[in-house]
Nucleic acid binder design. Sequence first.
DNA 1: CTGAAAGCGCTTACAG
DNA 2: CTGAAAGCGCTTACAG
Lengths: 345, 345
Amino acid sequence: MEIYTIRDIAKKAGVGVSTVSRVLNERPDVSEETRRRVMEVVEACGFVQNRNARNLKNTKPVFGAIIVRGRRNMFLSDVAEEMLHCAQAYKTPFIVKYIDEEDDEFGAMRRLYGERRAAGFILLGSRLDERSEAAAAMGAPMVFATVDAAGSGIANASSVCIDDRAATRAMMDRLVAHGHTCVAIFGGNSEGNDVFTRRYQGAMDSLKAHGISFDPENYVVTRFSLEGSYESAKRFFAAHRDVTAVMAMSDTVAAGVIRALWEMGLRVPQDVSVTGYDGTEMARYFIPSIETVCQPTQMIARESVKLLCEMLEGGERRYVTVNYSLVPGESVAQCAGERGTGDAE
Amino acid sequence: MEIYTIRDIAKKAGVGVSTVSRVLNERPDVSEETRRRVMEVVEACGFVQNRNARNLKNTKPVFGAIIVRGRRNMFLSDVAEEMLHCAQAYKTPFIVKYIDEEDDEFGAMRRLYGERRAAGFILLGSRLDERSEAAAAMGAPMVFATVDAAGSGIANASSVCIDDRAATRAMMDRLVAHGHTCVAIFGGNSEGNDVFTRRYQGAMDSLKAHGISFDPENYVVTRFSLEGSYESAKRFFAAHRDVTAVMAMSDTVAAGVIRALWEMGLRVPQDVSVTGYDGTEMARYFIPSIETVCQPTQMIARESVKLLCEMLEGGERRYVTVNYSLVPGESVAQCAGERGTGDAE
DNA sequence: CTGAAAGCGCTTACAG
DNA sequence: CTGAAAGCGCTTACAG
């Protein structure tokens, strides 16, 4: 298979290279007749533009980059896929970059900016801290997806997210309504103003409203993978048999916890209730199915892409909140009463 | 944050641009003294090479592309991640491109070649048919990962895979050893010489050796997602209550099937045994854990990357077979005896 | 060991 | 509406 350049096409079509370029970029200032002739040659040769050259030359926004933090995170990768899908409606191409849960998304952003001149960024599953400020200094517009940037004050940062605090509050209300008063929370390592903090606060809002106290030891920091949460749960429940419910900050974590409990002889939901977060496919098909907070994948994807494209055209930053919903599951039941620590003795 | 070019660096360091380029590319023909001076400036400016320009100019192999067929396939995405990891040991950068299960990986390959001049390809979860021949005409070396290209005769195609036929045969032997004679197989739509055919043949090898017949109606074509396999299973078991075991061609499919059975009141493994394929994390943590054929992720990744890099340097094509292993799981049990079709009546 | 120059394939003012 | 020319940031022979 031969590789053609725009110059080859120009020659074959008997026009100048600039004309071919115009046709390819769907500019209006080409006669219909010429356009057809050029397109015929393009089709016939199976010509594909060289993006390296295209991106090298262009000064205008050429493409956006989606940075996903967490490789094993099915929810985030679903959202990323959906973003790619939505992006097709815009002229701006998008690329996706996956980085490790523990990696620095702002470093990745900087690199993408330097290496390939990405014009704008969507940060999926990011945090919001000093480094985001530094990254903002690049001047490229960014959209935080699933994280609220409203308080950040960063000039070129928009965000799309659900009200995490309200969602966890509502979820905790459900657990309390089922009689659970001794709950453990499995979440991430809070580094200030991130999604984990919001969710934690929401849970506290609920407990406080119900006059229930929370032992800080019952906040378990875990990796967001099956293996990670499984290990965390094994360790935690070896010492905390009195807990009757777990609120996990992702469905994957919930699944790992359920498996660990199961192996320890604790049934879900009969002995322990477990809730998830995200509303993934897996939550629906796991046994038991996992009660969870559904973040609307499509809506988040669509709004994020739209926002970034707006900003690339000079639009203002905006903070969008989308609606979550509580998805019932088989993983929650009425509290059977205090189990106490008797088992461990 | 300002963006510097190689020319800025050259000026600041008081050298020519070619010298900076040499330092950046770790060429030997630069004096230690000059190298240090240049690197200092590079560090100080936080300079990053523009890959668009780099890839545009270069004629030598610059980067490889990994094309993953199937977005929801956790096994394949794990392998892809591992490949990226292995690739760090080579000078050749790699990029990953995910395409839909139903999409044309060879079209994607062609585009990547035209648009970005990828020098070589790793095809993850691909098939092998007429289109692969056409793609081969591009001349770029390719490595089929998890598919055997040995019989294809394509000049520039290597492959890395397990012996799929032997693996499914061994797995079916286990089911038969547990007394199962009426087995359904959940797999993909065979389009000739692909992995589904191999696995099917392996299963037949076993059944034939045991003098057990197989009703073609018991081969169920399904999408490789939880939802897809769940739906397929619901439909299938509504009419085929006599089946006592399911051999699924992926862990995800196995999970979907288990969930469907569970909802229909059929327990796994008490009523129906189910086996998976791939050896994913999920198989280990699902309830029940899923007995599966483990494909060695790391080995496949490492060998594929190595092979492609070899070929990019002019090496010969090779066909590598790596070892699979059978992972026991809670999803298989002794056949309780024929259930017959009584339930349906 | 080092630098000036050409060129990778495209886009975009600039003149017609 | 169309084409010749300059230039995006880099690499790579080519001369020193």
